[in-house]
Amino acid sequence: MKEEIIISGFGGQGVLSMGKLIAYAGIADNKNVTWLPAYGAEQRGGTANVTVIVSDQKIYSPILNTCTTAILLNQPSLERFLPYIKPGGTLIYDTFGIQIPPKRDDIHIYELNAMDTAAEMRNIKVFNMLILGGLLRVRPFVKLENIKEALFKTLPKRHHDLIPINLEALKKGMEIVKEINN
């Protein structure tokens, strides 16, 4: 098993932390992981992306030619990374950030309206957890319980009161993700 994931969106959307949770969950499952961020002058409103590899074999290159799964959260990210997805691979996108839907008939495409759902939940910060929930539903290569454990590890103790709403968002994301037939 080797999952190669690219997550890309606006800075501040939780792209890097989403990748971190996946990496932590992979380690909890005794898998090998690499997490490589784009570390340019990224900031809120700019673009941010991260490459995460989870594998039960040794990971040689942390740098990818192509990926098996892409989570793309805005139009520039879609344009840049859509060609990276291997045939048969998976694309998950948010309908708020991407208004011109992707066109490829050799990959599985899923969408979710995470931005509006986060607004309904009255906590815009859970946006990335909704997306992550969607990923766990369609590509369950890491376990939900390990993501929960990762939340405890990555969130500072003073924010642990936010864990329930994050878990709720994960669950909600699993519900609202839907496959798009080309």
Partner: peptide, 10 residues
Amino acid sequence: DGVIGQMMEQ
């Protein structure tokens, strides 16, 4: 180099 410095691994 920047890759090894910025990358996370176990």
